[in-house]
Design a protein around this nucleic acid. Structure first.
Lengths: 232, 232
DNA sequence: CGACCGATTGAAGGTCGTCAAACTACGTGG
DNA sequence: CCACGTAGTTTGACGACCTTCAATCGGTCG
């Protein structure tokens, strides 16, 4: 559990209106006038794997939209062990709970090289007060979080270790936009699936022996998805 | 997995403004004028244990506010097994996802004798469009669902069977408003904790032998909460 | 080169699932 | 009234699966 300081690489973002993933983000439905409500800057940040966006006790002043990369939300439980409760990817909004006046509910760490837009909470609240065009997006985002959580419970926390690993790999492949996909460290797989790192490792080895999974460079893999689904 | 027809006992509800749990419910922040927006009736229903509020494929026309009792949200997975992904109690809103135009995401069944208010979706949507005083409640409710889900993942789906059972009992005790609390069938405990009914039964037996748990009449129990917490 | 970290593999033991039987509570029908 | 059937709970025995502990391997970085 390394603690590293965030090296922030700032770059003033021209305009949200020009955003390449405009249709995916929280501000998708805003019009030109709405954007005039933004006074404080929305800044672009790049993070390297292991760096944190925020921790539970950080001052809840920003939310983050993911432009590219993968983020894990981690819950450190009272007895020391930790559990990854969610994965967020392109277009997702990290830290949404602070928009309700809550503290950050998790620790958010980059898994892959990460590009995010850092949005001041005050700006979202202002826009949300002055135009109705955020409401639907907000509700849709909460909805997605909730259905992802259901999936996490039914697919990733139920059944035998082997099935959980396969479900996880299928999920990772489905949210990847390239042919290969992100393969977490065995420790992280364990924290997602509530199994040990050794068990995770054994399952990955087995799938490799069975030729349904190829491990590429560090943290990347490719899989025969069709055949893998038959193994469930 | 019994399928029973809902016996509905209807009673025209005087006014939401007179509601005994007014401060807990979705409409908590509405004022007198807002209530004039309601045209279709909100009706009071009583259900017996095992009866269902709705199933996944029901037409998504109503949401339900729980006045008293306990509801389980069930997810039937592709491979036949089922998993309980959430418990809802007094003041909770069942079926909230349909307000976003989605189908029901779960099957909702009564665990205890249940009293709910059945609210037409169309009314909530109208109020939500014409007044901002529902927005905050809606967001707060989604937020609670999400943090409950986190808790479900970290406490009820992680660790050894014994700890999971203890966490569940502590949770049930905490949401009960009397001294004793609801004790699920062993099968339901299994579906909540991703363990078998036999294991659930063994854990309950053990806790009884250790004198930290007393099983009362059917589906009720009392526990020494302080001592039980030390067993984690 | 050596230290270190993560991944892998092995062996041993514990926990939990599976199968089966006995027990309890409850309601029905003889 | 009692015998009986049903459904849920409990308990036991056994085996599979997973964790634990430990050793090894491979790659990276100083």
């Amino acid at each position: 559990m390394k603690i590293e300081v965030i090296e922030e690489v700032w770059r003033e973002l021209g305009k949200c209106e020009m955003c390449g993933i405009r249709d995916l983000v929280l501000f998708a439905d805003l019009n030109e006038d709405d954007f005039k409500l933004i006074h404080q800057p929305i800044v672009d940040m790049q993070l390297k794997p292991l760096q944190t966006l925020f921790r539970t006790d950080d001052s809840p002043d920003f939310v983050y939209t993911i432009r590219s990369g993968l983020v894990k939300l981690v819950n450190y439980s009272s007895d020391g062990r930790y559990r990854i409760v969610r994965l967020l990817g392109k277009g997702d909004l990290v830290g949404i709970e602070v928009l309700n006046g809550q503290p950050y509910a998790h620790c958010a760490e980059a898994l892959e090289p990460l590009a995010v837009c850092r949005i001041p909470v005050s700006e979202v609240l202002r826009i949300n007060r002055d135009t109705p065009r955020l409401h639907e997006q907000m509700l849709a985002r909460w909805q997605k979080i909730s259905s992802d959580a259901d999936c996490w419970i039914t697919e990733l926390s139920t059944g035998q270790a082997r099935q959980r690993v396969i479900h996880l790999l299928l999920h990772l492949a489905s949210i990847s936009d390239s042919d290969d996909f992100f393969l977490p460290s065995r420790e992280d797989m364990g924290a997602m699936l509530a199994i040990t790192t050794e068990t995770a490792s054994r399952m990955i080895s087995a799938l490799r022996n069975e030729k349904v999974l190829q491990v590429l460079e560090k943290n990347r893999a490719r899989a025969d998805l069709v055949q893998m689904r038959t193994l469930l």
